[in-house]
């Protein structure tokens, strides 16, 4: 392809892809452990310990994908990093305090005196809620073009609620996979409730995005593009139906396929995310700044790319190792 002859063209594209991949991995992985925090008020004390046990060995690494995603934004598209984050100054601060609270609550609830444990459980929930709400809010503001007007803020509050429900949903599917007995039955109920919030959320963003921008509308609703894109909404619909059917029949005999809802939820996130990425390309700051305008110098991007190509497969490798070592049903966390 002609494009690959000029590094100033293909490097930004590659980095946009890497950043998108990191965000997707982040919302799936940290999505499930944020979701577990959001579901805390519905669980009793013993269940809380098991739910924590199901995310204990993973949450650190899950959050690192956020650092990588924002890091790639920072290093590959520095102008966009500044423009997006200064526009989202307040929700970012709320998210950061939320992330701090839940991360440390995780440790403190296990190590502080028992009379404090309830307090730290609440902090874990509150931190998860602050993080999910602010991320949902930022998603809404981003879709609306990062301008603070009343209708945009109202829409962002709506996506904040939807993303929170969405995270609870994927958290519930994770608990289904990692638990058994009563907790698993509870988690199946949680997931059933969450499906609808997720459908509404994806629906709201999908409906709003073309409405905000004529360019995006044309990308989706012109012929023959609409035909090539048809599989995306169809696949989403199929996954929703599949989830609903599976959840109604679960748990299956001898706990077979307990991973299915989590896998389908991941698929649903991926299709929704793919749709969004298609809508916004080539813009990184919606309708203002393209990835090509915002990109760092090619020689700097190239040196990062060299490292990424070597290191990213390694990271995936040892992440899979960790998920394999801690496979199976969750138990209380023990330092041995």
């Amino acid at each position: 392809m002609d494009m690959f002859s000029d590094p100033a063209l293909w490097l930004p594209f590659v980095f946009a892809g890497l950043m998108g991949l990191s965000i997707l991995i982040y919302v799936v992985l940290d999505g499930f452990d944020l979701g577990v925090g959001l579901l805390f008020p519905f669980a009793n004390e013993g269940e809380k310990d098991r739910m924590i046990g199901s995310i204990g060995p993973f949450w650190d690494a899950n959050e690192t994908w956020l650092v990588l995603a924002v890091g790639l934004l920072l290093v590959a598209f520095p102008a966009a990093h500044g423009a997006i984050l200064t526009a989202l100054y307040l929700p970012v601060a709320v998210m950061l305090i939320g992330l701090i609270l839940r991360g440390v609550a995780f440790e403190f609830r296990a190590k502080a005196p028992p009379e404090w444990k309830r307090l730290w459980n609440r902090a874990f929930f509150a931190g998860s809620l602050m993080t999910s709400m602010s991320q949902g809010f930022m998603l809404g503001m981003y879709v609306m073009g990062l301008t603070w007007t009343l209708p945009h803020v109202a829409f962002a509050l709506l996506t904040a609620a939807f993303l929170t429900v969405g995270y609870s949903f994927i958290g519930a599917t994770w608990v289904i996979h990692k638990s058994d007995g009563l907790l698993q039955l509870k988690a199946i109920d949680w997931a059933k409730g969450g499906v609808w919030g997720l459908v509404l959320g994806i629906g709201a963003v999908s409906a709003a995005t073309p409405y905000v921008s004529v360019r995006i509308f044309d990308k989706w609703f012109s012929w023959p593009e609409a035909l090539y894109l048809a599989p995306l909404p169809l696949l989403s619909a199929a996954l929703v139906v599949g989830l609903w059917v599976a959840l109604r029949r679960m748990p299956f005999d001898r706990d077979r396929r307990s991973w299915l809802p989590f896998a389908m939820a991941t698929g649903l996130w991926a299709t929704a995310f793919g749709g969004m990425a298609y809508s916004f390309y080539p813009y990184v700051v919606p309708e203002k700044l393209t990835i090509y305008e915002a990109a760092s110098a090619p020689e700097s991007l190239f040196i990062i790319l060299v490292g990424t190509v070597v290191v990213l497969p390694t990271i995936l490798g040892y992440s899979i190792l960790a998920f394999t070592i801690f496979r199976g049903k969750a138990r209380e966390l023990r330092y041995d």
């Binding site: 204990g56 650190d60 690494a61 190792l321 960790a322 801690f326 966390l333 023990r334």
Partner: peptide, 13 residues
């Protein structure tokens, strides 16, 4: 970051 975060899980639990 990834090295320490992933292997921390194995080291601790």
């Amino acid at each position: 970051f990834f090295l320490e975060a992933v292997f921390l899980g194995i080291m601790l639990f």
